[in-house]
Amino acid sequence: LDKYVAAVYEHSVILPETTQKPVSSEDALKLMNKNMDILEEVIKRAAAQGAHIIVTPEDGIYGFFFTRETLYPYLEDIPDPQEVNWIPCNDSQRFGPAPVQERLSCLARENAIYVVANIGDKKPCNPTDPKCPNDGHYQYNTNVVFDSDGKLVARYHKFNLFMSEAQFDFPKEPEVVTFNTSFGKFGVFTCFDILFHDPAVTLVSELKVDTILFPTAWMNVLPHLTAIEFHSAWAMGMQVNLLSSNTHKTGMNMTGSGIYAPDGSQAYHYDAESENGQLLVAELHSHPSISPTYLHSVNWSLYATAIKPFPENNNFKGIIFFDEFTFSKLNSQAGNLTVCQKDLCCHLSYRMTEQQEDEVYALGAFDGLHVVEGEYYLQICTLLKCRTTDLQTCGEPVTIAHTRFGYFSLSGTFSTNYVFPEVLLSGVHLAPGEFQVLSDGQLISQN
């Protein structure tokens, strides 16, 4: 197929009651069945709309706030689909009790749709294994994929666990999990994995997958790490389809799912108000690398290193998500501006058309190691609205803006070619079709 229909579901997960004592496996299954009752209805709706595949979120079946011990009743032994040919719907007891895999498999089979879900895997280990936990087993945050016959075709153990996931173990090596379909080659990873090289970049750059399946439980952080913003940018930067299904829990800043293609979002959902779930369905190219809009190569530093730097204004420091940026205020209605930090210089050309007097914008640069919820090296160029006219608020989260820009061009002297172009509009909206990336590394407004 040249094209296929993808679905993602942002699920408002029903959480178990917080407990220090593990519940029985019957009570654990009761809770998981409540979530799967909702997923069942959604899977039927997606299939009725012609979807070939549906992605559901990380923690979408058992929720969160577990210890290692309280999670255990929710886990099942998930076999390696590379080694076994298994349709749990037909033979659920083959590898021990597997009621969750059985139900997911049957939903896939009965609705003739690929189903992607996130559940927990347990694997006994030998005490002679120096890494074997004291309780004698590993437990993994796991994505599973069932094909339209209900067969288990992929299993992925999350590698880059988020800091609050002490209930899980990570695999010794990153797993590079792919599978082929009549609508392209797929890869899979989970949530925090997207910020790291392995397995995320390897799947795209070396294994040449067409679409990434991405269950997540993403806590939004403005101005740069809101789910819809960063995930759509990653799909554009990597030139790959990304099916991102977020858990919906506004109290934890979790919302924002989308069907993202290399040329922009095809459908997205962001709802910080209600506690409702949302199904998204959209058509994608099965092989985006041979679609007409595919960008074959971008040299992200070409323009920025070729031009003579623009004048620098009085710089000042500001914090974005614990990182100290160097900022420069946009002092006039239009102009050219450069701001540098260490090896990174960021250039901006802009023209405001409706400047609001009570709003201040700044150009910022950051070149350094981020060391808070994980350790990863960033080089960031950003044009942003400051929270108030006080420059000390530049970099603080903002959701509403009124100043209009008629034109912008942003570029930087990046040391890496892995650069993700983010544009976020007032009200936390994406801007598909309203900006473009040039092959010389400029991010410019479309008109």
Binding site: F168, C381, F408, E422, L425, V428, F435
Partner: peptide, 30 residues
């Protein structure tokens, strides 16, 4: 121009080669 005013326009670069080695131990409790 854009349909709504801009909150942020960003080039978010990840320089993977400069990441520190991965810790042997798993993540700490938040």
């Amino acid at each position: 121009g854009t349909t709504k005013p801009i909150l942020t326009v960003t080039l978010f670069g990840r320089w993977y080669e400069s990441d520190p080695p991965r810790p042997e131990k798993g993540p700490a409790q938040l």
